[in-house]
């Protein structure tokens, strides 16, 4: 069984929720990324979402766009991110999920990518521009290696899409809290709660909510309804602008979730 599924099962038994921080691999350097993963784990992260830089991140807001540009300028590639994860596996077994756009994976070759991701110790994949309708090949190669393919739902999702995505996803359902890009404003709790109820009506798989969660109060409100909370843009911003406040911020998120 996949580490992610195990984790959610365990958390559920203990009545706890997953804290899932996101960082951009290679921003500001891959060495720093290795340190940050360990720091995040030390601050109570349950799963770490590692962004792979891409030239055209169309689902991302300005904070993560800029982080990707910085990482690309330093020559960070999908291959190097996989090597970084492999290196980290000597030190930690915290579940790591890659968030990558599809073209770098396609270019790598799906089979080769699944082999190398498995070899490196990657637990799951989030590919924001690959809806399950187009993901048959990726699902097949990932499943063979026990790598979770995590699909997304959005506030615009119809009942039909909720059923389709819930069926296709493994690990958890990633609910995009807002109609928009990463780092935008979070909608009222009631909207998020209503959507989570609709998803729960069709699946027992865990649901994590991301895009737009910044303040600990927001994280707390979301965690009451969901099984996990993803926080990205605000962490990426602090890594670059307020490294000293980072630990305190991470711990406050952990407490809230």
């Amino acid at each position: 069984m996949n580490r992610i599924e195990n984790l959610f099962r365990e958390l559920r038994q203990r009545g706890r929720k997953a804290f899932i921080p996101y960082i951009m691999a290679g921003d500001p350097s891959l060495r720093r990324t290795r340190e940050l993963v360990l720091l995040l784990e030390g601050c109570g992260a349950d799963i770490i979402e590692l962004g792979v830089p891409f030239t055209d991140p169309l689902a991302d807001g300005p904070v993560i766009q800029r982080a990707a540009e910085r990482a690309l300028r330093r020559g960070v590639t999908l291959r190097k991110v996989l090597q970084t994860v492999a290196g980290l596996r000597k030190k930690t077994s915290v579940p790591i999920v890659l968030m990558t756009y599809f073209n770098p994976v396609f270019r790598y070759g799906l089979e080769a990518f699944a082999d190398d991701a498995f070899g490196a110790g990657v637990d799951g994949l989030i590919v924001p521009d690959l809806p399950p309708d187009e993901a048959r090949d990726l699902i097949r190669v990932a499943r063979r290696k026990g790598i979770a393919t995590i699909f997304l739902l959005a506030p615009t999702s119809t009942e039909e899409r909720i059923r389709l995505v819930s069926r296709a996803t493994t690990g958890f359902v990633y609910y995009v809290s807002l109609t928009g890009i990463t780092g935008a404003e979070l909608p009222p709790d009631s909207e998020i709660v209503r959507m989570i109820k609709r998803i729960r009506a069709v699946t027992e798989k865990p649901i994590a909510v991301g895009f737009g969660v910044k303040r600990p109060e927001e994280a707390k409100a979301v965690a009451e309804a969901a099984d996990g909370v993803v926080v990205g843009s605000s962490i990426v911003r602090m890594i670059n602008e307020d490294a000293e406040g980072l630990q305190r911020y991470l711990r406050s998120l952990r407490r809230a979730i």
Partner: peptide
């Protein structure tokens, strides 16, 4: 071809 976009846009493309 295909439809490689974020889930948010899928219902709009279907519409």
């Amino acid at each position: 071809g295909g439809r490689y976009v974020p889930e948010t846009l899928i219902p709009a493309l279907e519409e």
